[in-house]
Structure formats: C-alpha cells, structure tokens
C-alpha cells in the first residue's frame, strides 16, 4: 500500500512539474530545457531553510517560490530577447550551471553528498508524517497549480500567450508587450517548478544534485511533448504514464538498474518518434511550427 501511495506522490510532483512547463513550452512556445534547475532550486531552498534556520514549511515554500521566480526573471530577461533555439540554448546553459553549483559548492549545498535529514513538515500544528498526509498535501498543491494554470490559459492573458507562440510579429502589431508577457510566464513556470521541488525535498527528506540534472529537464520536457504541448490534461496523463512506466518494467521482472535506463530510452525514443510523426503529441495543439 505504501508503495502505491509513493507512486501517487511522485505522479503528483511530476504533474506539477509538467503542467507548469507546459505553460511555458506548450502555451507560450518558449522551449525551456531548464525546468529541473528551478525544481532543484526549490528543493535546495526548502532543504537549506529547514535544516539551517528550522523555519516552518509554509514560509519555506513561499521563499522557494519567490527565489526561484527571481532567478527565472534573472535568466529570462536577457535570454528571452533571443528567439527559439537560441533561447533553448540559454536555458540549457543555465541548467548545466545550476547543476554544477549544486554539485560543486560543497560548503553550502553539500555537493555530491547532498543534504540529508530534512525534517518532516508541519502545517498549522499538523505533522505531515505519513504517506497519506503527504499525498493529500501534494494533491492540494497539485490542484492549486492546475487551477492556476487553467485560469491563466483561459484568460485574455492566455490568449496573448498563444498569439505570441503562433506569431510574435502579429502579437506586437496588436499592441501586446511580447517581452514582458514572456518573462512573466517564464517566472510563473519557474515558481511552480520550485513548489514541486519543495515537496520532493520534504517527502524524500534527502536531496542531492543527481535529481536535478539536464536529463531530468529533458524528462519533464518529454512529458509535456508526449502528452501534448498546449494541453494541460495531456501533461497530467503523460506524467502518470511515464512515472508508472519504470515500475511496470520492474514488475515485469526487469532489474531496477536496467529499468531506469530503459525508462529513459523509451521516452527518448518516443520523443524522436513523435517529432517524426506527431509533433503535437497525443492530445496537444502546438506542433512547434512557426
């Protein structure tokens, strides 16, 4: 039973990650390969605050969102002046750097040894110490993220985002401040990714840089693309399927070391196949055309 709950919690975390990335990639057309970096920033901020200052969970989550958002602005404001694949490269570089800071700044982040012993969170006196409670917490946060994303994409602001994705020049000609919209959505995506990071840190109670690599970024991006860029429910579905996949492989008798590689091979191959035959993913609406 605990195993099942564990899988559900992971699915919840990946839903938060992929839905927020979909806002950036699928709805606004900004191909970011740095989502795991913001995910990691959230995790490290929460872990460090909890370990060093013993500050409460809710405060930590707010700090993580704000810091990650600020970092998003810092990266986004210069990077978003360039377009398409050059933007992707800038985010790729940011991802590599963030990892390297986590890995090398040993005195602060613990380096490859990571940060163990993150305490269990308490919310208004209620200790989140069982799988059930964690799942409820992830569920609540996931619903909030989904609701916010849903509101955004269906608002007039969401319409502007889609117009930027489809034709930036046209959006400008309609008087839209394309640059500021892009930065805003990038910052929101970064903030939401950090929420997932906070949850991950508290849930596993140990973090190290290997959870926030470029491969993780590509994995989250794959969830978005496989489910379908520009469709929130596609991301929800794909997150569930891709998280269950390695478990299913293990269930079929594959050793877990190979199952981890197999999972990556499967989503990597899916990425290539989809680009060849169905770039909009299973139920998406954006096919990366300009």
């Amino acid at each position: 039973m605990e195993y099942l709950l564990h899988i559900l919690i992971l699915i919840g975390i990946y839903i938060i990650l992929s839905v927020s990335l979909n806002l950036v990639v699928g709805y606004s057309g900004l191909l970011s390969i740095a989502h795991a970096a913001f995910y990691g920033v959230g995790a490290y901020v929460a872990a460090l605050l909890a370990l060093k200052l013993h500050s409460p969970f809710l405060l930590n989550i707010i700090c993580a969102v704000i810091l990650s958002g600020l970092l998003g602005a810092l990266v986004g404001i210069p990077s978003l002046r360039i377009r398409d694949d050059y933007f992707a490269i800038a985010t790729f570089a940011f991802q590599v750097i963030t990892f390297s800071v986590m890995n090398n700044w040993v005195s602060f982040t613990g380096g490859p040894m990571g940060l163990p012993g993150i305490p269990q969170p308490t919310i208004f006196g209620l200790e989140i110490n069982t799988h059930y409670r964690f799942l409820s917490l992830v569920f609540v946060l996931g619903v909030i993220v989904l609701w916010v994303c849903h509101k955004i994409v269906n608002s007039p602001f969401g319409r502007v985002l889609k117009s930027i994705r489809e034709d930036e020049i046209f959006a400008q000609a309609q008087g839209k401040n394309v640059a500021s919209c892009k930065v805003l959505v990038f910052v929101i995506g970064a903030g939401m990714a950090s929420v997932a990071g906070v949850m991950y840190a508290y849930y596993i109670s140990f973090i190290d840089p290997t959870s926030f690599t470029i491969m993780e970024s590509i994995f989250i991006l794959s969830i978005v693309i496989i489910g379908g860029a520009g469709n929130i429910w596609g991301s929800v579905l794909a997150a569930a399927v891709l998280v269950i996949l390695p478990e299913a492989l293990r269930f079929l008798g594959m050793p877990s070391s190979i199952a981890a590689n197999m999972r990556q091979i499967i989503y990597g191959a899916l990425l290539v196949i989809l680009m060849l035959f169905r770039p909009q993913g299973f139920i998406g609406e954006y096919a990366f055309k300009k």
Partner: peptide, 16 residues
C-alpha cells in the same frame, strides 16, 4: 478579441 486594447484581463492580477 486579441486586438482590443487595454484589456484588464491581460493583467494576471485581474484574472485572479
């Protein structure tokens, strides 16, 4: 709808 100017809904704070 995209072409109307000064839409309150294009500011996220109003949406929320």
């Amino acid at each position: 709808l995209l072409s109307f100017q000064n839409q309150a809904g294009e500011h996220l704070k109003n949406t929320f």
